[in-house]
Simulated assay, not measured.
Amino acid sequence: MSRPLDAGTSEEFRRERALDVLIPTRNRPAELAVTLSGLAAQEGVPGFGVVVSDQSDGEPAYRHPAVATMVRVLRHRGHPVLLTRRLPRRGLAEHRAYLLGCSAARRVLCLDDDVWLEPGAVARLVTALDELGCGFVGNAVHGLSYVDDVRPETHRHYEEWTGPPVPETVRPDTPQWQRASIHPAANLLHVTEKLDLPPGTWRAYKISWIGGCVLYDRARLVEAGGFDFWRRLPRRHQGEDVAAQLAVLARHGGAGVLPSGAYHLESPTTVTERDVEAWEVVLAAPDAPRPA
């Protein structure tokens, strides 16, 4: 039997550092353990913090021995970890807003609880964000069960940035919106294989939005409103990450980073209540007042 796990306190955790990883989770102890194992194997970004906020129906996932072990591994390797509960559930956007409020880091990585990151992925994202000077960068997640499902018609939407990303207003009725078609399944993996990049190199490409693994300049995310729009949404929504990214894109620009080191675990979704697209509500009333 393992000993009880110390959850940590917000006061001790919320300190200025280079990077914090923000992970919302619900009813996924196995997936969360895999996600944390990927973080524990990262090199080149010492001392990043990790916040896990759990909204499970029963006991929090971090009570599971596998998750608790990975938390201890992260701490052993010098990474502060804060474990929290956020109940009652008020929707995905509120959950992300809460996680963002737990951090005072200069950069924040919004990471879903069903994504494994290969070694070096976080360091590559940090390098890209710093060199590009934009509001966010991201790794689209690969679904390896689709590795033999090649969809060349989607590859035409891949377009690299030839200089620093510039602000863009991306909307569903614009050609830029179609860029998202390179992210499902294993499309981006097939694009990467065609490019045959030398080891250690990366490319920035144009995006509409990225799901699962997005690194923000925290100040720029907050300046764009963060996830404060949660008060304007019903609890049963999705697309909160899209809404936040569109706001940052319009002010500071953003980019996808290739190769992606993010792999989707392809587990059944825990987001089963999808009555409203958050980005549609936000775009319909972009000048609505922010909450006090």
Rank of each mutant, 00 (worst) to 15 (best):
G49N: 04
L19S: 04
P24K: 03
V170E: 02
L265P: 02
R86K: 09
H142P: 03
L92M: 08
V73A: 07
W230F: 15
D54W: 03
L32N: 01
L249I: 03
Q176I: 01
R151D: 14
K206V: 08
R63D: 13
W177I: 02
E43D: 13
R218T: 11
G78W: 11
T192F: 09
L249M: 13
V141D: 02
E131N: 02
W116Y: 15
H237C: 05
R220S: 02
T174Q: 05
Y158Q: 03
L117A: 12
L265Q: 15
V108R: 00
E168M: 08
V170A: 04
R96V: 00
L189Q: 11
P184S: 11
E153I: 00
V150R: 12
G101Y: 01
P152Q: 06
Y62I: 11
L195A: 10
R75I: 10
V50Y: 05
A140K: 01
E193K: 13
R89I: 06
T270G: 00
A186L: 05
L258M: 15
W230M: 04
A30R: 14
G38V: 07
R14S: 14
H264K: 06
E168P: 02
E273D: 15
R290F: 00
H76Q: 14
A278D: 01
A66W: 05
V52F: 11
D20A: 08
T201G: 11
S37M: 10
M1F: 07
E168I: 03
E266G: 06
L32R: 04
A68E: 08
S2E: 11
R72M: 07
E266R: 10
D148C: 10
L189I: 03
S53V: 12
A30D: 15
R26C: 12
S267V: 15
V257F: 01
E12Y: 02
F48K: 10
A128V: 15
R28W: 09
V276G: 03
W116V: 09
T9S: 15
Y263M: 13
G38W: 05
C102H: 04
S53G: 13
L39Q: 01
A185N: 12
H157F: 15
A292W: 00
A243S: 10
P4Y: 10
P291G: 01
G8Y: 04
S10R: 13
P65N: 03
E153S: 11
R89G: 11
G133K: 09
L22R: 08
N27W: 03
E160K: 00
R232H: 14
S56Y: 11
P164M: 01
A180W: 04
L99A: 10
Y146R: 06
T272Q: 12
R232E: 14
V34W: 05
P167I: 04
D149F: 13
Y263H: 14
L5Q: 05
A262S: 08
A278Y: 00
H76A: 15
P198L: 10
W279A: 03
L111Q: 05
P24V: 10
P172G: 00
V276M: 00
T169A: 11
V108E: 02
R179V: 04
T272D: 07
F48P: 05
L5E: 07
T84V: 11
R251W: 05
P259N: 09
L111C: 12
P286S: 10
S37Q: 14
S53T: 15
E273N: 14
V52E: 02
R151C: 07
E11A: 13
L215E: 07
R86E: 07
A278F: 00
A262P: 09
I210F: 08
T69Q: 13
G261H: 05
L39W: 07
E118I: 08
E118K: 14
